[in-house]
């Protein structure tokens, strides 16, 4: 295929230019990659925190078993609710004795059990936003035999704020560096076009279509972007390993994200080349 052969020939003709632009793109994609690792780990932490979100409804001592069973069935019927666990007063005392073993003697000395029975409500994953939790909690607290409902509203809001800030930061910084990579590819292709302007003029002279002239440059941009991603991958991995070993444990990004990095590199290369060639063809 002529366009592919020409693109590869261009790499052979100007290897320094190719390596230099690929390295610069690699650097930009490296920053994007570090942000991806950070964003991924923040998300993992938040997911773990979120998985613990549950609503506890403390019941009055005079609640009848029938009332509790009915309420349990009704709450379980809510689409956001995954499980409703009934913890009786006796069970609550047992758990308290186990978890607070240091002061278990206090419980043993008691003549009466001071702990209330409760319903522990866990939610369906993905249905743990502050709005959902608040709505379920309100629904549960509407039962007359429910004394109090706890779900840690304040830190739940903070977790969600943190998640939004992390997401926005990754998007803005990642986007900015992706743009830098695109500009670098554009500049590299412009240089390549300048070096081959006579050839392009002759192509037009003998009746080459714009598409025919454009195609080798699109391949060139695509390969440069891909090469940049290939250089960025080990760099990001080394930085990840150093951070993970020296400071705190991190998780490596999912393979799909790595693939995404290559796709971004290639697509940026094509877009940047397209715009550079289009500009040149319009000027002629």
């Amino acid at each position: 295929m002529y366009a592919l052969r020409e693109a590869l020939a261009a790499f052979r003709r100007t290897p320094v230019l190719t390596v230099l632009s690929a390295a610069m793109i690699g650097l930009s994609l490296c920053v994007v990659g570090i942000f991806a690792v950070t964003a991924h780990n923040v998300r993992e932490v938040l997911d773990r925190v979120e998985s613990r979100v549950e609503i506890v409804a403390y019941l009055r001592d005079d609640a009848t078993e029938q009332q509790v069973q009915d309420a349990r069935a009704q709450i379980l019927a809510l689409p956001e609710v995954r499980e409703v666990l009934y913890v009786s007063r006796a069970q609550a005392l047992e758990i308290a004795k186990q978890e607070l073993s240091d002061i278990s003697s206090i419980f043993s000395d008691l003549d009466v059990n001071p702990l209330p029975a409760s319903l522990e409500i866990s939610l369906v994953p993905g249905q743990k936003g502050p709005d959902v939790v608040t709505a379920v909690a309100a629904r549960v607290s509407s039962y007359s035999f429910v004394e109090d409902v706890r779900y840690g509203r304040e830190w739940l809001d903070k977790v969600y704020l943190l998640r939004r800030v992390a997401g926005a930061a990754a998007l803005v910084v990642g986007g900015a560096f992706a743009l830098v990579a695109a500009l670098i590819i554009g500049a590299a292709v412009r240089m390549a076009i300048f070096a081959r302007r006579d050839e392009i003029a002759i192509m037009r002279l003998v009746g080459a279509t714009h598409g025919f002239i454009r195609r080798p440059f699109l391949f060139e941009g695509f390969f440069t972007g891909l090469l940049g991603a290939l250089l960025a991958l080990p760099a990001v991995y080394i930085i990840f390993r150093v951070l993970s070993d020296a400071i705190f444990h991190l998780d490596w990004i999912p393979p799909l994200w790595v693939l995404g990095g290559f796709v971004i590199g290639g697509v940026l290369g094509i877009i940047a080349s397209w715009s550079a060639v289009r500009q040149h063809l319009r000027e002629l």
């Binding site: 009746g207 279509t209 714009h210």
Partner: peptide, 8 residues
């Protein structure tokens, strides 16, 4: 533009 190429 495409016809220019063909004409040339």
């Amino acid at each position: 533009a495409r016809e220019v190429a063909v004409l040339r």
